[in-house]
């Protein structure tokens, strides 16, 4: 880890002032990803601005029936919060599918959104990587790409976003609240993370002088018909090869509203409105689940080691939609997929 200066932010305005004053500074909260990347020399900030003393730890109901989550709420506290357990069990389940108990105790809500890819080559400073070093090339496209993306890739980058929590937040259509030098703004979750295109060094649309202050969940939580299914190389504490968040609103034997988001397959949590539209109004059964899966995966592209993900994703989508429709969500401590 390189030497760096350290300072504490007194409030949000002070944090924004400090980050604006030093373009090679970074905010630190939980640090579970940043410290790791610094130990690998992937990140080399000259200053860390400690934001853990900011008053961003509340989980509170909003006037329009939603819930606002402060950016510093630890992942474990969020997953086990009574409001989240009762009204957004899909989010609670996705959080508990990620990382380990220790890391969930440390990692912040805002930081979870900003974690970087676990592509092998992003971490290996001896190899080219357009995300780490723009213009140097992508080692994964012709390399060991078993864990890499199958959707929304570019010639420059086939990395995936590693978060589980974000897959649920995408399905729930959360909003990201941020503050910057020119004030506050809200970013729809679908617009927060980016596709790699020819600028894979930019993971998100957060500006360099902005800070995440909160995540807001809309009133609709799909608490009755939902499931988060994560498929990975070992049964716990591993990143997803494919994960699926499914949320359905079922009324009178038909699907009235449907959300489907995938993790482990793209540079951002992947949603496909056309696939979701195929589910709207349909009787919840396997044939329509399969149609939605085929639509979502119609442009999927496999590479030398990850083409298996296309069929895996198709099966996982069908299974997760069935779990959601049957109100038998995957329980993260039970490893049998039902």
């Amino acid at each position: 880890m390189n030497n760096f200066a350290y300072s504490r932010a007194a409030d949000v305005a002070d944090a924004v002032r400090q980050i604006a004053a030093d373009r090679n500074a970074k905010f630190i909260a939980g640090g579970t990803n940043l410290i790791d990347l610094m130990k690998y020399d992937v990140e080399r900030p000259v200053r860390l601005i400690d934001i853990t003393r900011l008053p961003l730890r509340a989980v509170e109901e909003t006037r329009d029936g939603g819930v606002r989550v402060g950016a510093l709420v630890p992942n474990s506290d969020l997953a086990y919060h009574p409001l989240i357990e009762a009204r957004y069990p899909l989010l609670a389940s996705a959080i508990l599918a990620g990382a380990s108990a220790q890391l969930r105790n440390m990692a912040s809500t805002g930081g979870n959104l900003l974690q970087r890819t676990r592509c092998l080559y992003f971490y290996d400073t001896a190899t080219p990587c357009n995300k780490r070093e723009p213009g140097s090339g992508c080692s994964a496209i012709n390399g060991i790409n078993r864990t890499n993306a199958i959707l929304g890739t570019s010639e420059a980058c086939i990395a995936t976003h590693p978060s589980d929590m974000c897959v649920a937040l995408a399905a729930l259509e959360a909003t990201v609240h941020v503050a910057g030098p020119s004030g506050e703004r809200c970013i729809d979750f679908a617009d927060f993370h980016r596709l790699p295109g020819d600028t894979p060094d930019r993971d998100t649309n957060l500006e360099s002088q902005e800070i995440i202050t909160a995540i807001e969940l809309p009133a609709k939580g799909f608490a009755e018909n939902h499931s988060y299914l994560k498929i990975r190389d070992r049964l716990s504490y591993a990143f997803a090869l494919v994960s699926v968040a499914a949320a359905l609103e079922i009324n009178g034997g038909r699907i009235r509203d449907a959300r489907l988001a995938l993790g482990g397959v793209a540079h951002k949590p992947w949603r496909d409105r056309e696939a979701e539209a195929l589910l709207q109004g349909a009787v919840p059964e396997r044939t329509v689940f399969a149609k939605a899966a085929d639509r979502l995966l119609r442009d999927a592209k496999g590479y030398a080691h990850n083409a298996f993900k296309i069929d895996l994703a198709r099966r996982a989508i069908i299974r997760t939609l069935a779990q959601a429709a049957n109100a038998t969500p995957q329980i993260q401590s039970v490893k049998k997929i039902r």
């Binding site: 373009r23 970074k26 000259v46 723009p134 998100t204 002088q209 800070i211």
Partner: peptide, 16 residues
């Protein structure tokens, strides 16, 4: 922790 800060840039500031 904004991702865009991770882009290549001068590290000449604050080197004390």
């Amino acid at each position: 922790m904004g991702s865009s800060i991770g882009a290549a840039g001068s590290r000449s500031e604050s080197q004390a």
